[in-house]
Design a protein around this nucleic acid. Structure first.
Length: 883
RNA sequence: GCCCGGGUGGCGGAAUUGGUAGACGCGCUGGACUCAAAAUCCAGUGAUAGCAAUAUCGUGCGGGUUCGAUUCCCGCCUCGGGCACCA
């Protein structure tokens, strides 16, 4: 029979939909498996071939797990708040909700055409008031939570003990005290502002070159009143929680880096001639003897006090210039250090020496204490600075392990050494401190002990992670359930959801006002007491909706609560989460943060949301360039004699691998692939291309390869001459069970490419044999079906079944059929393979040796040489070692 | 600069508690079927030399450990991703 994939696929997709084949029934008696895709932002462009990659992988596993007897939760939804729909609204006046609905419809249609087994009754959309009601609700929980350092967890603010001295200062003081501890707070903040998008954005959304991740335009600093979340309070938990997660090490490393934990000490320096002390943070307190100057950041609160009159003008100028600089200027372009002397001196607490205090923008206010002790001999940045401004460099650590030349330079203060060594010039007997001769680790411990004993410093831990800027000046996002009253009080609106108002125009203001500031009616509220207030006009960032969507899938239609706790307890955590590596830090860190807060509040039952994470690799495409490296659009390329040349100029071109892009005209549209080869072929090819986590180029010819395979399978198994009753041929039976074993273990390890290869191997064997038994055919169809589900259902039906095979039991490999009696040993001489020798597997080693020596070819290879020994690895290899 | 990954035929990729390098697929070559083509089927296909048996070389480069290294160790080259004045 001919393989009419179009009809077959339509038929089964309709069947699944009509019968709700994949509706998740929660059966507490069964083991559960929650398998989740990172839900997409439904863009106007529709699906690209990257989407089906991860979706197919999770779909295959879902189908496999169902056949293994698990209750499987496999949902899909839309992360539908976001800029593009809003930009479109600004340009055309179309309400973003309309655009969003249209895009979701397209995505849903495309996804359904791939035969993915989602439970569509659980579809969610972050822009649906029934959904974002609960996003707002979680915000309220964050607002009403403080982090109790003592117990190491978040607790309701109602349980926050307020010290008597605060209570004594009145209601306002108490309010401020509590607000300072809430996980969500509203305050002035130096924030990143993108003039092009007219919105602020999070640190995490600013790229290294100082541009906005979303649009590529440069961002600038702006001081605005914003909502922020105190994610640093959870830094330690977010860090230690990573250890037990089955996540790619690279992703964990990126999160560890982002959290940026460092251990060191805070040290107080007395300012000479004043009552002030200057506190610094350093990871190298052991180098205190080498501190020859200090630096405070231009934003440091003590600049005013420390700058002496004769330096006032220069310092003020420097500070002003620094404030105008973007971070780009302060880093990338300004490798050259800059700074200005304050005129003040501090006293080095171990040596008693006066050391100058400088202002320099290489010290950031947002980290540590915003001030450092500078040790040019043992810190490269300080060394550069000292070098430029002629500040003395005192080496206090002898790099004993370094090459002689380097060591000499370091000892003379002409080079910087950050490694280990032995301390010199690091003792002050009168003050009871002596590090000389110690190594770095010992030195740090010893000086820290001394600082704490003297009360001038203490061991400290610091994190790079900052408060998360959580508001945006946009229309298309979740409104904050917040009211700002005329008397300055801020209260939460518990009447959820707070809906977005309908508007005529969606443009944000240029000065940082949200478009919602123009929604007059919506904006103004009057309290029961007649007090007037104004709604919060900022909206939440896109991350908000995706922070917790995996929880709503558990009980998506619940009107009364965020979800039923019994269901949450059954389904959580997510057993496998597959998505792109681009979310390694942002989404996954934010999500873990919210989850931990919800855990502390007793709302969820697990401390971590995603037990196993897997990143699919990007799908690339072939592209072409000239010898000079100029890219050539793919429609201008022709293939000739195995090479590529320019269709017009005839210039020879090189084939390269690049991201799909409109300009290179190498974008693959999944719709086209489906109409040409079918969904099963698309699925199979995406999985067959290579390992799921690697980036790999799309090749049209490869699709044809798997398409041929499907054709051969279909032709063979639909041919009545291929299927017979009776006993199976032993060779075929063995091949079948090898396939079952290989496919099963490959599925468990997410190695889809080799699983498909095993299916091909079996099909080749079966076709060569000419026919198989009905039982063999059924087993093969079962193990094929997760990969090519339409084909699976069709063949299953043709084999005489009238129900879906989605819940048929997964076949088990019979190991007894796989035991071999003989093994064809490769026999090598000095490691070089010379011939093969078939021997019984149970043969004792001495007899194997005898057999090898007795073999006719052995004497040939040993001619004129002497036998040293024979190495026999039973079931693996024989190696004859000779002179 | 630092931290992660990669580098295997003409191409996508198999194979690692160290044990037959190149599974499977594409492409290519030859053959069958056909008036012919497509499709399909069969055979071959790492490189070099040879009529052949066979030999030598071969997993980015250079060393090392081992009876044996794609796999382990040391030093490089290169591509991709992330971070980057965080004291």
């Amino acid at each position: 029979m001919e393989y009419h994939f179009g009809e077959i696929e339509k038929k089964w997709q309709d069947y699944w939909e009509r019968n709700k084949t994949f509706r998740t029934e929660t059966d507490f008696s069964k083991p559960k498996y929650y398998i989740l895709d990172m839900f997409p932002y439904p863009s106007g462009a529709g699906l690209h071939v990257g989407h089906p990659e991860g979706y197919t992988a999770t779909d295959i596993l879902s189908r496999y797990k169902r056949m293994k007897g698990y209750s499987v939760l496999h949902p899909m939804g839309w992360d539908a708040f976001g800029l593009p729909a809003e930009q479109y609204a600004i340009q055309t006046g179309t309400h973003p909700a309309l655009t969003t609905r249209k895009n979701c419809d397209t995505f849903r249609r495309q996804i359904k055409a791939l035969g993915l087994s989602y439970d569509w009754d659980r579809e969610i959309n972050t822009t649906d008031p029934g959904y974002f009601k609960w996003t707002q609700w979680i915000f309220i929980q964050l607002y009403n939570t403080w982090y109790d350092q003592e117990s190491g967890r978040g607790r309701p603010v109602s349980e926050l003990p307020v010290p008597a001295q605060v209570t004594g200062n009145g209601k306002e003081a108490v309010r401020r005290y509590i607000d300072d501890r809430r996980l969500a707070y509203y305050d002035h903040a130096q924030v990143w502002w993108c003039a092009s998008c007219r919105t602020v954005c999070a640190n995490e959304e600013v790229l290294t070159d100082g541009s906005h991740e979303k649009c590529g335009h440069p961002v600038v600093r702006k001081n605005l009143k914003q909502w922020l979340l105190r994610i640093p309070h959870y830094a330690e938990r977010l860090l230690s929680g990573l250890d037990d997660l089955d996540w790619p090490e690279g992703v964990k490393d990126m999160q560890r880096n982002w959290i940026g934990k460092s251990r060191g000490a805070e040290i107080d320096f007395r300012i000479i001639g004043r009552e002030t002390t200057l506190r610094v943070y350093t990871t190298r307190p052991d180098t205190l003897f080498g501190a020859t100057y200090m630096v405070i950041s231009p934003e440091h609160p003590l600049t005013g006090e420390l700058v002496t009159p004769e330096h006032r003008e220069a310092a003020a100028e420097y500070i002003r210039a620094a404030s105008l600089k973007s971070d780009l200027d302060r880093t990338e372009l300004a490798k050259e250090k800059s700074g200005v002397f304050t005129g003040s001196y501090a006293e080095n607490p171990v040596t008693g020496e006066p050391i100058p205090v400088w202002i320099a923008d290489y010290v950031l206010m947002g980290y540590g204490t915003g001030a450092i002790m500078a040790v040019p001999a043992h810190d490269t940045r300080d060394f550069e600075f000292a070098h430029k401004f002629g500040i003395p460099v005192t080496c206090i650590l002898d790099p004993t392990g370094a090459p002689a030349e380097t060591r000499e330079e370091v000892l003379a203060g002409r080079a910087c050494w950050t490694g280990d060594g032995k301390y010199i010039r690091s003792a002050h007997p009168a003050r009871g401190i002596d590090l000389n001769g110690l190594h770095k680790e010992q030195g740090i411990a010893e000086i820290t002990r001394w600082l704490e004993e003297k009360g001038i410093g203490k061991a400290t831990v610091n994190y790079k992670i900052r408060d998360w800027l959580f508001s945006r000046q946009r229309y298309w996002g979740e409104p904050f359930p917040v009211i700002h009253w005329e008397d300055g009080e801020v209260t939460l609106d518990e009447e959820l959801p707070v809906l977005l108002p309908d508007m005529e125009r969606y443009e944000p203001g240029e000065g940082g006002e949200s478009p919602l500031a123009n929604a007059r009616e919506w904006l103004q509220v009057t309290g029961r007491d007649g007090r007037r207030g104004r709604r919060e006009t900022n909206t939440m960032p896109q991350w908000a909706g995706s922070c917790w969507y995996y929880l709503r899938f558990i009980d998506p239609r619940n009107q009364e609560r965020i979800f039923d706790p019994a269901l949450e307890k059954y389904w959580m955590p997510v057993d496998l989460y597959i998505g792109g590596a681009e979310h390694a830090v942002l989404h996954l860190l934010y999500s873990r943060f919210w989850h931990k807060v919800l855990f502390d509040l007793g709302i969820v039952s697990t401390d971590e949301p995603f037990r196993k994470l897997f990143n699919q690799g990007m799908i690339l495409a072939f592209a072409y360039e000239t010898a000079a490296g100029a890219k050539v659009s793919s429609d201008l390329v022709e293939e000739s004699d195995g090479g590529f040349r320019h269709r017009v100029t005839g210039e020879p071109l090189n084939q390269i691998v690049a991201k799909m892009s409109k300009s290179l005209k190498n974008v693959i549209n999944p719709d086209d692939v489906v109409s040409q080869y079918g969904a099963d072929a698309l699925r199979l090819y995406e999985m067959f291309m290579g390992p799921l986590d690697e980036r790999k180029p799309w090749a049209e010819k490869g699709v044809k390869g798997v398409f041929n395979f499907l054709n051969r399978v279909y032709r063979f198994f639909t041919d009545p001459a291929s299927i017979r009753e009776g006993e199976e041929d032993p060779q075929v039976l063995k091949a079948l069970h090898q396939a079952i074993r290989k496919v099963t273990s490959d599925l468990e390890n997410l190695r889809f490419n080799t699983a498909i290869s095993a299916l091909m191997v079996f099909n080749n064997t079966a076709m060569k044999q000419g026919n198989v038994t009905r039982e063999t055919a059924e087993i093969f169809v079962k193990i094929l079906s997760p990969f090519a589900p339409h084909m699976g259902e069709e063949l299953w039906a043709l084999l005489g079944h009238d129900h879906t095979l989605a819940y048929e039991g997964w076949p088990e490999a019979d190991e007894t059929l796989l035991v071999e009696a003989h093994f064809e040993y490769p026999v090598s001489f000095n490691g070089k393979l010379r011939f093969k020798l078939e021997l019984p597997l149970g043969m004792p080693v001495p007899e194997i040796e005898k057999a090898v020596i007795g073999h006719g070819k052995t004497s040939h290879y040993l001619e004129g040489k002497s036998l040293r020994k024979i190495i026999v690895v039973p079931g693996k290899i024989i190696n004859v070692v000779h002179s």
